[in-house]
């Protein structure tokens, strides 16, 4: 399975590093030269990390893991008012982006209050399009428990955040993250954010393991590159028109106009439409692409 990393090093001889990635069957996602330094974001299968580390040592570079690099994470706030935004939702969002994730903040329409909390079916579908979710709830245990019940039926891994330090019987809960009136900059608060990250990482590793048992026909990074090479997607929402998911991609282009073109992309010896399912997203009229597994296409056992 492909994992994402960041290389930081000098611009001198960085081409050797790029060649090594290409030789090892990896993909250079982004190269940012800055005067004498260069940042290279790349995805690579995990077979030869030791060999790559040797090259990095030779080039006096630095290797940084981006554990969420191939994920889109939803951060759900009960509303978009000052009670729930910007702190700590934006802090979490910003923190996870440091680890490579694409984060979307979702504000629920009627997510506030204890008795009137609602998460609609459409909202659930929007959240479920992501690889993982974080729900930022309030500061009272009783309320959090009531809201948690409403989340039944979500199939993606999610973390609950709230004020109380601990809640019994809720394993995916991180405390001390209730309402904040300022940015989370103190050492204690950063530790809490780390906790969220680690919990999420654990959950996502399980998902990765599950995908590994019945692997996808092609890694999403490869399909992403094929699409970007074969179609002009400029002028999309945001500067990253194709977002990686664990099991596919989100393509930020209108579904009706683009889905036929996208499904004609040539990936390896296949046409993309035959090895994936394209679906209209509930969010901003984008395309959700789910890759089929090897067993489904008929390549695997």
């Amino acid at each position: 399975m492909f994992k994402m990393h960041l290389y930081k090093g000098g611009i001198y001889r960085h081409d050797e590093f790029i060649e090594a990635i290409e030789d090892l069957g990896g993909i250079v996602m982004q190269k940012t030269p800055m005067q004498t330094e260069v940042d290279i974001v790349f995805a690579i299968p995990e077979y030869d990390m030791d060999y790559l580390k040797k090259i990095i040592k030779k080039l006096k570079g630095e290797l940084i893991d981006i554990p969420f690099g191939d994920m889109e994470i939803a951060i759900v706030a009960p509303s978009l008012s000052r009670h729930h935004l910007p702190h700590p939702v934006c802090d979490m969002s910003e923190f996870l982006r440091r680890y490579g994730s694409t984060t979307n903040i979702v504000g629920l329409a009627r997510g506030y209050g204890k008795t009137i909390f609602q998460i609609s079916d459409k909202e659930k579908r929007i959240v479920s399009e992501h690889d993982a979710a974080i729900f930022s709830f309030g500061m009272f245990e009783e309320c959090i428990l009531l809201k948690e019940k409403e989340l039944k039926g979500l199939t993606l891994p999610y973390v609950l955040c709230g004020g109380p330090g601990k809640i019994e019987n809720v394993s995916n809960y991180v405390g001390n993250l209730g309402r904040k009136s300022g940015r989370m900059r103190g050492p204690e608060e950063i530790k809490t954010l780390e906790e969220v990250k680690n919990l999420l990482l654990e959950m996502v590793d399980d998902v990765r393991e599950e995908i590994g048992k019945d692997p996808l026909i092609f890694p999403p990074v490869y399909v992403k590159r094929a699409i970007e090479q074969q179609w002009d997607l400029s002028g999309s929402l945001g500067d990253n028109p194709v977002v990686l998911h664990l099991d596919g991609l989100r393509i930020k282009k209108p579904f009706d106009e683009y889905h036929e073109r996208i499904s004609k992309t040539k990936v390896g010896e296949y046409e993309l439409g035959k090895i994936s399912t394209l679906k209209k997203s509930n969010m901003n009229d984008t395309i959700i692409l789910t890759l089929k597994t090897k067993s489904e296409v008929g390549e695997g056992p």
Binding site: E22, G25, P45, P219
Partner: peptide, 13 residues
Amino acid sequence: FIYLIDAIEDESH
């Protein structure tokens, strides 16, 4: 190069 694993295509090869 002789590949010992399944690797994806790359223009440079």
